[in-house]
Design a protein around this nucleic acid. Structure first.
Lengths: 210, 210
DNA sequence: ACAGCGCCCTTGACAGTGTCAAGCCCCAGA
DNA sequence: TCTGGGGCTTGACACTGTCAAGGGCGCTGT
């Protein structure tokens, strides 16, 4: 397999974070694990941030695909919103290394990495699309304001959905909710799933169930 | 002003984060700004994490007090929930250095710092108390389950409130929502305030308005 | 056949970091 | 006057990311 060092470096980085948290991330240790010299990674990437940026890009793509796939399996608006939320927390908990990097702008500044930003935007567009479809089916005539986005009800709902599942994911990963379910990964996922259902009832009380 | 170096170090640390983000935090730079040698801070603290832990402790205390004060000013259950949410996002945006450290377990592991953990727990207890009072006033007879906390409706609501405002705060601080309001601090706060109102309507649709 | 080139990677050095280990200065108390 | 120790400094170490240079090796053109 040619050009394998590049992917080895990315994989080793993710593994390192999963093993010891993002605080344990060191490119020299990554190189060590990949069995190369400490400068080998920088043959493929200009600097450390670019390596992390590539991981973030993969993360957003993965989240996008997981979301699209889960949402495609259901029919009703309410189920779509729920599937979207489930995809988010499952992604966060199962691929926590990716998730953490994706929301740490001091490690990866998306403005310096247009391709990664594009991947993030694609994911966001997908979410907007799903929310629009879910609520559009519920309120077929709802107009889509575009002058002032802050007033756009769709954007508002997107931000509401996103904040809830994002906050839940972040608090779970930080261990802030451990006392309410014990800290094992499976317990976390179960708690997350239950809470997503609750959230969906709250955020989408009027959505058709089927 | 005796013993002032200790507080100078804490202040300089916070200032450094506010200036350049948590990535720019360096204890040697802190010492430089305080005008002392690079080891002076470690006369008062055993290690870097303990310095940050002290800041986190102050942060939780500040959040606790801001929340209590804002909630005390209002009467109705709905207004209490809203005041609590506002206190949270305002704290996060106005004291972002504290907020970021408080939710970064790789920098400060609360299990290693019992006093800080106690401050965090006090804040959490306050929130539980507020939610209990707000919903208790709305549903006077509601029982308080305690065997399995995950099933406790109060805890559920607390986590719901918390997730929403925490996710909103985190996304705002990460700049993920900038495109929908422009990135200035004041615009962020305004957007946050508007969204908290929306959230309160969602999470507490049935609460008395006065 | 062979010189030259470019890709892939290594080696070495540098400034920066947090932390360990001493040591220095000065003042209170005996 | 001597002693002890609180408050800080100095120096060293291992570690980090990054800059600069160089080495080996397969392909290509002549």
């Amino acid at each position: 397999m040619t050009d394998d060092l590049k992917t080895s470096i990315l994989q080793a980085s993710v593994q390192l974070i999963e093993d010891g948290g993002v605080g344990a991330l060191s490119m020299r240790e990554v190189a060590r694990r990949a069995g190369v010299s400490h400068q080998a990674p920088y043959h493929y990437f200009p600097d450390r941030e670019s390596i992390l940026s590539e991981i973030v890009r993969e993360g957003f793509t993965l989240l996008h695909d997981m979301t699209a796939e889960k949402v495609a399996r259901v029919e009703s608006p309410a189920a779509m919103i729920e599937a979207m939320g489930l995809a988010y927390v499952e992604f966060a908990l199962r691929h926590s290394a990716y998730f953490q990097l994706m929301f740490r702008s001091e490690l990866v500044n998306l403005n310096r990495h247009p391709e990664t930003k594009a991947a993030a935007d694609r994911t966001f567009e997908l979410v907007i699309d799903i929310v629009t479809r879910a609520y559009g089916a519920a309120e077929p005539g709802a107009p889509r304001a575009s002058a002032e986005d802050g007033e756009d009800p769709v954007i508002r709902r997107v931000i509401a959905c996103w904040s809830m599942v994002h906050g839940l994911s972040h608090l779970l990963l930080e261990g802030k909710l451990d006392r309410h379910h014990g800290g094992s990964p499976e317990a976390r996922l179960d708690a997350a799933r239950a809470l997503v259902s609750v959230y969906v009832e709250m955020i989408a009380p009027g959505l058709p169930q089927r």
